[in-house]
Design a protein around this nucleic acid. Structure first.
Lengths: 204, 204
DNA sequence: TAAATATAATAAACACTGTTTAGTAAAAGC
DNA sequence: GCTTTTACTAAACAGTGTTTATTATATTTA
């Protein structure tokens, strides 16, 4: 019976419609101003309809969060061609920071906001995050094997690298790096210098 | 006229009453569940009364945020007695991380949440943050003078150290460090190892 | 001291929010 | 054609931050 398949297609289409609208509103107006009623009005359905396709608001933002991870992952995979693992590590870090600077709202949702957490917990593990972390872990492991970076536990190193990257970027995203009256461009170059300093200090 | 003074005292008392109640509710139930109506009920006044003492909810949380910085600052100043600047730097970093782990809600408000930002912007500068950053900056400057750490611009180094510390603890506070099925205690020791690795890599 | 004024507090409303429930049309199955 | 299932929604619920109009109290002035 093809009707069942068509219905499934329509269900998926509706989910996409909601996600597309929510994503657009989220990137344009931010999380707080992206209400269920706003999304409903945008797609010309009643608010209650949205709850036929998503459990709650958190689930919508969990999907957006997953989509954002897919974008970042795509950018990571581009570095597969870099043969030298240390150079690849540097490229991955720069990509991570650039992604955050170019997509602060996505970054916030992926690594700072609490919204997707309920879903992550109910799914028992953070698939998207795991996948990205795995890429870092493998790169660092390759660096260690070729003795390109100072020896240490690969997990400890991965956490260190991720923490540093997340630290710079999240202080910026949540506007805490405006200490002292530095102009924006000076601050940005300081952030870059800090990252370069850190990455250089990893070298064997 | 002593009446004016008494009135000022009463006004200050009322502000304290509100802040104390808000702080208690915030630390017990979190930001979202600390509503103006909850605070009002707790202090046995109407919600509208709170607006006679504070411009808005953000202002209340700005004051709580300032109080939290005073606590952190007190813990920092204890390290004044450590003569060696590098040892002091390490102590400051460990204190920073311990503070975040022991007071995750305060940490969130100080370095992650957007709530106090409107006030910070209207006051033209982030006094509390500046003060804490200044302490780090001075410690690092002292390290540089005595050539205890690798030479680099003091601002770049300060941003690096702060970023690293903030990175580890904020990934933890916002529950992103649960990648891979590590048990909590293992994760905590990994975080500590990462911090130690980073601090060691600063050494001249 | 009595009337006028200033202050402090509030009830009620406004405009939102996420979410649920009960009821209604339209489509699908028999 | 009739019954059942599906898709949708209006309206309500319980909450949010904030404002306005009103009242009761305290202070000042005549």
């Amino acid at each position: 019976m093809a009707i069942k398949e068509r219905k499934e297609r329509e269900k998926a289409d509706m989910r996409n419609l909601i996600i597309d609208s929510a994503t657009q509103l989220f990137l344009k107006q931010g999380y707080d101003k992206t209400s269920i009623r706003n999304i409903a009005e945008d797609i010309e359905y009643s608010p209650a309809t949205i709850y036929l396709y998503f459990k709650d608001k958190d689930e919508i933002f969990y999907v957006i969060h997953e989509n954002a991870f897919a974008i970042l992952d795509k950018q990571f995979r581009k570095h597969d061609v870099i043969e030298n693992p240390y150079e690849r590590l540097i490229a991955v870090c720069k990509t991570y920071v650039r992604f955050a600077m170019e997509n602060p709202d996505y970054y916030d949702l992926m690594f700072i906001m609490r919204a997707p957490l309920s879903q992550i917990k109910s799914e028992e593990k953070w698939n998207a995050g795991n996948c990205a972390f795995e890429y870092l872990l493998q790169t660092i492991d390759a660096c260690l094997e070729r003795k390109l970076i100072r020896p240490a536990d690969k997990y400890v190193l991965s956490i260190a690298v991720w923490s540093f990257g997340h630290g710079v970027v999240s202080l910026h995203v949540r506007e805490r790096l405006c200490v002292m009256g530095m102009p924006d461009d000076v601050m940005l170059s300081m952030m870059e210098s800090s990252l370069n300093f850190f990455l250089a200090s990893l070298k064997a």
